[in-house]
Design a protein around this nucleic acid. Structure first.
Length: 178
DNA sequence: TTCACGATTAGCT
DNA sequence: GCTAATCGTGAAG
């Protein structure tokens, strides 16, 4: 399910430019029976959108200064989402570069969950937004993507870290880690 | 109301 | 490899 997003194109039409990147790394959060998921404690003000209809964005702030982008995966009233961890920049890379002064190489522009939100200028205003329409959308590839998918253990969490719920396009130089 | 902590990143040693 | 930056959220009092 989550691995189906690999190879999809994330597009952000801003007022001035078109920013786009190919999804090369994702991480799944089940919501039920997954203590690492934000939604495991039930519906709260923050996690309400995870219980909403699928295909919507769940944006949250982490460590007070970074943002991460998720896609709601499960039908309404059921929790479950997919964290977008890394993008391969496709369009508007000069703008992404100016959005991320710390990045020294193209591959550093969006090879991390907080990096890609910064590169594509994705803010909290997209929390709950519909990703099938609007300025921020996800486009599925027209043809079946030809790439090898690798499963890895999840990153940056303290519970249920042994689950292999992180998926990435094997050998992509734009993934955050191998 | 108060308090501890996190699905991270960047910079320095 | 280690750590500061920085604040919303959720649980406890």
């Amino acid at each position: 399910m989550a691995e189906g997003l690999l190879g999809a194109i994330l597009v952000h039409q801003t007022r001035k430019v078109l920013l786009a990147g190919r999804i090369v790394e994702v991480e799944a959060y089940l919501g039920t029976g997954d203590p690492a998921a934000h939604s495991s404690a039930g519906v709260t003000a923050r996690t309400a959108v995870i219980f909403g209809p699928p295909g919507h964005a769940y944006v949250y702030r982490i460590y007070g200064l970074h943002r991460c982008l998720n896609v709601v995966a499960e039908p309404e009233s059921r929790p479950g989402c997919v964290l977008i961890r890394a993008l391969e920049p496709l369009l508007g890379t000069p703008v992404m570069d100016s959005n991320r002064p710390a990045a020294k190489r193209v591959r550093d522009l969006a090879n991390g969950p907080a990096k890609l939100t910064q590169a594509l200028a994705i803010g909290m205003e997209f929390n709950g937004a519909d990703l099938l329409k609007g300025p921020l959308t996800i486009r599925m590839p027209d043809v079946a993507p030809q790439h090898r998918i690798a499963a890895r253990r999840r990153i940056g969490i303290s519970s249920a870290r042994e689950l292999e719920l992180r998926f990435l396009i094997a050998d992509s130089p734009y993934a955050s880690r191998q």
